[in-house]
Computed example of a mutant assay.
Amino acid sequence: MARMAAFIVLLIPALMAGAGIKFLRDTLYGKLISPFPWLWLQFIIGIAFLIIGLGFFAGYLLNRDRKNGRVAPKFDKQSK
Rank of each mutant, 00 (worst) to 15 (best):
M1A: 12
A2M: 05
A5F: 15
A6W: 15
F7T: 11
F7L: 15
F7G: 12
V9Y: 12
L10H: 13
L10E: 09
I12E: 06
P13A: 01
P13C: 02
A14S: 11
A17L: 08
G18V: 05
A19G: 01
A19Y: 10
A19M: 09
G20S: 05
I21K: 10
F23C: 05
L24V: 07
R25M: 15
R25Y: 14
T27V: 07
L28V: 07
Y29P: 01
K31P: 00
K31S: 05
L32I: 08
L32W: 07
L32N: 04
I33N: 10
F36T: 08
P37E: 13
P37Q: 15
P37V: 12
L39N: 00
L39H: 04
W40A: 02
L41E: 04
I45H: 06
I47Q: 04
F49W: 00
F49V: 00
F49Q: 02
F49S: 02
I51W: 03
G53C: 01
G55Y: 06
F56W: 13
F56H: 09
A58C: 08
A58R: 09
Y60S: 05
Y60D: 03
R64Q: 10
D65Y: 10
K67W: 00
V71Q: 12
A72V: 15
A72H: 15
K74V: 01
K74A: 07
K74M: 02
K74N: 06
F75K: 09
S79Q: 14
S79D: 11
